[in-house]
Amino acid sequence: MGAVILLVLLAAGVGLVLSGVGKLQTEVPTCYGRPMVPGDVCKARATGPVTDGMPVPSDTTYQEQLDALTSGGWTSVGLGLVLLALCVVIGIAWAAGAARTW
């Protein structure tokens, strides 16, 4: 049972790190479906009335769009590293406990 938990944590950690790194390397900011390049500004379109709780449309730069896209990648990498560290700590604790029983 303990080995299964360790393997699940390991797989989840590696998966999160890999997906985060992939997101950081492949995301391209777009403006209404068109790829943006550094220096571009995406002009917001008002498509209808802004309702309560909805953000007001605003212009965004290439860098703002890129930051919004890659923030999820960094979050994924960070969570994956935390899971991998937890996996190492649990593995060491279990190995130390097993060594004491011998």
Rank of each mutant, 00 (worst) to 15 (best):
P35C: 02
A93C: 11
K23S: 02
D59M: 06
A3M: 13
G33A: 01
L16S: 11
S71P: 05
L9N: 07
A11I: 12
D67Y: 05
Q65K: 10
V50M: 04
A99N: 13
V8W: 10
L7D: 05
V21D: 10
V21W: 13
A96M: 05
L83N: 03
L66P: 13
V28I: 15
G22K: 08
P49T: 04
G48P: 09
Q25A: 02
A85P: 06
G20D: 02
L86E: 14
L84K: 08
L69N: 02
P35R: 00
G97Q: 14
W74P: 03
A85D: 03
L7G: 07
L86H: 12
Q25G: 08
M54P: 07
L10Y: 08
L83W: 06
V89C: 01
C87T: 12
V4M: 15
G2W: 10
A68K: 01
G91Y: 02
G20W: 00
L81G: 07
V41D: 08
L6R: 10
C31E: 15
A99F: 01
P57N: 02
P35N: 02
P49C: 01
L83T: 03
I90C: 05
L84Y: 03
V56I: 10
G48R: 09
A44G: 06
R100W: 10
A93V: 07
Q63S: 13
D59S: 01
G97I: 00
G33K: 07
M54L: 11
L66R: 10
W102E: 05
S71V: 03
T75K: 04
T61M: 10
K43I: 00
G15R: 09
P29R: 15
V56D: 15
C31T: 11
P55T: 01
Q25F: 00
V77W: 14
G80M: 12
Y62N: 03
A12P: 13
A93R: 15
I92N: 12
L16P: 06
L84S: 09
I92K: 12
T60K: 07
P35K: 00
V50K: 09
L84R: 07
G78E: 00
L24M: 08
M36Y: 15
M36Q: 09
V28C: 07
R34V: 02
T26Y: 06
V4G: 04
G33E: 14
G73Y: 05
C31M: 09
G72M: 00
T51E: 14
D67M: 02
G2F: 12
L79G: 11
P57H: 02
L18P: 06
D67P: 00
D52Y: 11
V4T: 15
K23E: 13
T60Y: 00
G97M: 13
W94K: 13
G53R: 10
V14L: 08
